[in-house]
Design a protein around this nucleic acid. Structure first.
Lengths: 169, 169
DNA sequence: GTTAGTGCAAACCTTTTGCAGCTCT
DNA sequence: AGAGCTGCAAAAGGTTTGCACTAAC
């Protein structure tokens, strides 16, 4: 969904198009993909150093409530923050590599199928759907095999401290 | 997956089956469904008032890492906590009513299909998958229609303060 | 001129961590 | 005996809220 449409949609709802919102909207739209609040905040600050983190959260909430962006968790691969993307024409699943963090998008009829079946099966009105798949990309499968081999004798798995990836504030 | 199997699996990994873990494991298994850490903690305290919340988190982390339970978000319908369920034989999607919170489970071939397609399409090794669908159950669709009608003239949507559901500690 | 929106500080909720002491095997 | 676990207190990470001020319409 192009920014202009989002802006129109907001105006129609009587939502004010402030300078801050323009900046955030443009960033979400341009960036292409998967920004979390903090990242969006950092980017926004480059355009307006006064813009507050809270405004970012409030704007994201607004857009989410209006169905203009989708909220993702990406399997909490790097913390518990949420990610956002403008709502695309096509529903898609996110496929996250648990080792390198790479994200693939899967468009395919099983998704549409599932949606239809859920609607007809339960008489449920689907508003939003989120499918996230975690695993290992072809590249990391190889690397993991090597790592496993290297870890060799250590049968008692060496306390793999999957330390929460720290983020820079 | 029955508790006994989980317990065996843990023992085999050299994980100690402490009193606390027994309690938690049994609760997760019996409860049937979708407990979050806090709820599990409350239930556990009834059996052992000394059991600490931290132990609950550590146990859940352990089970998740071992692939013995699945972690769910349930569309963050009532906050940002995570929910857990023992890993069932069949993969399924969770369908959450955004109005009443009711949860349906959808088992169906589109899920298996999608998994297969992702594996073959990207050469991706799927480890876990999570599909969550939000919308309105047949019951709430009717109620919402009435609510909408009642809200009638108020075109400017009355600041629907979706206040984060407070939880009792 | 109103009313909605912003910034700031402080709170909040969920989860994690450091460490001393306890407990399974 | 010794590694592994637990409890406690404290912190961290992510997000929300109250309120006075500002800006969009």
């Amino acid at each position: 969904m192009p920014v202009t449409l989002i802006k129109d949609s907001l105006k129609q709802q009587g939502v004010r198009l402030t300078r801050q919102r323009q900046i955030l909207l443009d960033l979400i739209d341009q960036s292409g993909q998967h920004l979390d609040a903090e990242r969006l905040y950092q980017l926004a600050r480059e355009k307006d150093p006064k813009l507050n983190r809270v405004t970012v959260y409030r704007t994201l909430k607004l857009l989410k409530a209006g169905g203009l962006v989708d909220e993702l968790d990406l399997m909490h691969h790097s913390g518990d923050q949420h990610y956002y993307e403008t709502r695309l024409k096509q529903e898609h699943a996110h496929v996250i590599c648990l080792r390198c963090g790479k994200i693939e998008e899967f468009f395919g009829e099983p998704l549409k199928r599932m949606r239809e079946q859920i609607q007809s099966h339960f008489g449920f009105q689907v508003v939003l759907a989120r499918t996230e798949v975690g695993g290992y990309c072809s590249h990391c499968q190889v690397l993991r095999a090597k790592e496993m081999a290297a870890a060799g004798g250590e049968l008692r798995s060496p306390a793999k401290r999957a330390t929460r990836r720290r983020r820079v504030r």
